[in-house]
């Protein structure tokens, strides 16, 4: 039983990271109907940004308090990564808006390769380690919960709450949803559609940057290829939860995190990805629009 709960905790941690990335996929898909395959690399970029900020902070101030360092890392990574995604959207995707559907998709794959190669060239091809920043582990009824895990789950929960509030209860969120549902009508009501789409890319990237920072802190290492696997997993999470749905992305992320850690705990770890994708396939057979996704057909 304790072993099981232990795996739940681990799965929840992993799932939080997936969920944060998945939101970027689902929001961009919702608003312009495009799968942004470069999003995983945006996540990786966020991790590197955090690492660089850490090194700069330690170089400048030496014994800076960990909490403060982490806070600055997250903040700067969010800003930098958001800026990156803003530029990418403006330069690579916007000119293709209104062309055939595959064009932005292929461009996104190209952008993904370009970003990971860019990091390979500028940061080197080897694993980049970061010293363990937080190492406390607590024992709760026989289950060991590390401070890292608590930070990850809490930061995720806080961000998701803020995010949920923005999307559902602010003028910006309304403009985003309006743009998603009827771009032309949104413009007729004075919504600057291009700006709203830009902001959506920035928001998605900022959350991915937080995920990247958490990933770096959790595993203590990052490398230029790290965008790929978590990116694909998070995309899977978005599809599983129902692409276009925000709660779906979080739910899908948590599910995939849990499936992975539970499978690894009780069965062979080598097959954990097989298990994840099998479950995705099964869910999609019975519910093609994902768990919380809406069916394509709509009353007009």
């Amino acid at each position: 039983m304790e072993y099981f709960v232990q795996q739940l905790v681990n799965g929840l941690t992993l799932g939080s990271i997936y969920g944060l990335i998945a939101i970027g996929y689902t929001m961009v898909y919702g608003i312009i109907g495009m799968v942004n395959f470069a999003h995983g690399d945006i996540f990786m970029l966020g991790g590197f940004a955090a690492l660089i900020v850490y090194l700069v902070l330690v170089g400048l101030f030496g014994g800076i308090p960990i909490a403060l360092a982490l806070f600055i890392m997250i903040l700067v990574a969010m800003v930098m990564t958001g800026l990156w995604n803003w530029v990418i959207e403006k330069m690579a995707y916007r000119p293709l808006r209104g062309s055939f559907r595959l064009a932005p998709l292929i461009t996104a794959i190209g952008m993904s390769i370009a970003l990971s190669n860019f990091i390979q060239v500028t940061q080197g091809p080897r694993n980049k380690p970061i010293p363990s920043m937080v190492s406390s582990v607590y024992d709760v009824f026989g289950i060991s919960i590390s401070l890292k895990q608590i930070i990850i789950v809490v930061v995720t929960a806080v961000l998701l709450t803020i995010f949920w509030y923005i999307v559902n209860h602010t003028p910006l969120g309304r403009a985003q949803r309006a743009t998603e549902q009827d771009r032309k009508m949104a413009a007729l009501l004075g919504v600057d559609v291009d700006k709203t789409i830009s902001i959506t890319f920035i928001m998605g990237a900022a959350l991915a940057a937080v995920a990247g920072t958490m990933y770096l802190m959790y595993y203590g290492v990052i490398v230029f290829t790290d965008g790929f696997t978590p990116g694909v997993k998070a995309f899977t999470a978005a599809v599983l939860g129902g692409i276009g749905s925000l709660p779906g992305a979080v739910l899908g992320g948590l599910m995939i995190g849990l499936i992975e850690s539970l499978w690894s705990a009780y069965f062979t770890i080598d097959y954990k990805d097989v298990a994840t994708f099998s479950i995705l396939a099964i869910v999609l057979i019975f519910k093609p629009s994902g768990i919380l996704g809406r069916p394509e057909v709509e009353k007009v």
């Binding site: 003028p171 309006a178 007729l188």
Partner: peptide, 25 residues
């Protein structure tokens, strides 16, 4: 302000939110 052809109500927003969209200027 236009009430366009086909009405173009935001289908997944409430009536209240649709009116809020109108007042966003």
């Amino acid at each position: 302000a236009q009430s366009p052809e086909g009405r173009r109500i935001f289908p997944r927003m409430t009536v209240y939110e649709n009116l809020q969209m109108g007042a966003s200027l």
